[in-house]
């Protein structure tokens, strides 16, 4: 079934992957010796020079963007990649990549991989990455952020704090489970809805980064706009309680709403599809052959040109809680 869809038969892509705010995504994995990070896959859209500079690159703990996330075990946001600690500064400069966000993925104390998002400086792009960390008052405050053309929203967010259980970051802290909110502007669950609506933000994905089963490091929010979405679709997969199969708990398909009905009925066994594969191996993965990997809905995905995806596991200590899929 893996070859049910031939990638060569896919029509001219309706969407160009990684053409908005996100210009590339990549996964860095620990080497066999475990002493450095090696390239574990990536999707670079049209940035061939960045791909070429990445595939043979390695990072020691603390080195560069992925190494910093490994060392700190916390999300890292790096601005001005062409001038900072970014190891591939020349390639970043040449390809117009300006900022990067690295999310660590640990299973207990064992590093499973680092997911890196690389953003461009397109003046039309809108979106944000926010890292909300605990302060001494047991509130979540903004500790790092990247805002693309969202100056006002970003400015006010610096003054906002969320106690445990409040707002999207606070709720994610309590549930220790990723959460999606669509139609942000109308949402009562998203406390900054008015600001989000004013700046055209449409979807929020929250991801808990845990230090241990009860100890939260931070909550990462990915804020996506309808005009230049961070991803064309977001899915959160988890294991069904009554069976061993995996199902989609929450999803946002943006303009591709016709994917919704099929997705609601979709059930995967561990190892099946992108989410099932990540669940099986326990490590982040990037694919540029999504319709092949997702054979059950490959045709529908190929038809609209969704070929590229990133998926990564969300661990609470050593327990795999969910897998997040982003169709790019």
């Amino acid at each position: 079934m893996q070859n049910a869809v031939d990638m060569n038969d896919a029509p001219e892509a309706a969407v160009r992957p990684l053409s908005g705010l996100l210009r590339a995504v990549e996964v860095w994995r620990p080497s066999d010796e475990g002493d450095h990070l090696v390239w574990g896959g990536g999707a670079y859209g049209e940035l061939d020079e960045l791909r070429a500079a990445s595939v043979d690159e390695t990072f020691a703990c603390g080195e560069g963007l992925p190494g910093a996330a490994w060392e700190t075990r916390s999300p890292v946001v790096m601005h001005q990649l062409s001038a900072g600690n970014f190891k591939r500064a020349d390639a970043a400069r040449a390809t117009g990549v300006t900022a990067g966000v690295a999310l660590p993925c640990f299973r207990g104390d064992e590093l499973q991989g680092i997911v890196v998002f690389l953003c461009g400086d397109d003046p039309e792009a809108q979106g944000a990455f926010e890292v909300w960390s605990r302060n001494h008052r047991e509130e979540l405050g903004l500790s790092a952020s990247y805002y693309a053309n969202l100056e006002r929203f970003g400015l006010i967010s610096q003054y906002v704090k969320f106690p445990r259980g409040s707002g999207l970051p606070g709720e994610t802290w309590v549930s220790r489970f990723p959460k999606l909110i669509s139609r942000l502007g109308q949402s009562k669950g998203f406390m900054r809805a008015a600001g989000a609506a004013a700046d055209g933000l449409s979807t929020a994905l929250s991801i808990p980064i845990m230090r241990s089963s009860l100890d939260l490091d931070s909550v990462v929010l990915m804020l996506s706009s309808a005009r230049a979405p961070l991803a064309h679709a977001f899915e959160i997969w988890a294991r069904e309680q009554e069976s061993d199969s995996l199902r989609i708990c929450q999803a946002d398909y943006g303009q591709f709403v016709n994917l919704q009905p099929g997705a609601a009925k979709l059930r995967y066994q561990v190892g099946e599809g992108l989410a099932g594969g990540v669940w099986d191996h326990g490590v982040p993965e990037v694919t540029e052959e999504l319709p092949v990997v997702e054979s059950a809905r490959g045709e529908a995905l190929a038809e609209i040109g969704l070929t590229t995806a990133l998926a990564w596991p969300v661990y609470v200590s050593t327990e795999l809680a969910a897998v997040i899929n982003l169709f790019l």
Binding site: E139, Y159, V160, K161, F162, P163, G165, S166, G167, M191
Partner: peptide
């Protein structure tokens, strides 16, 4: 110094805090 914004009840709680500069 800070404003605590409460959600509308029932089941009201702190919606968010705003630090004032």
């Amino acid at each position: 110094d800070r404003v605590c914004m409460m959600t509308t009840g029932p089941r009201a709680k702190v919606g968010q805090m705003l630090d004032l500069p």
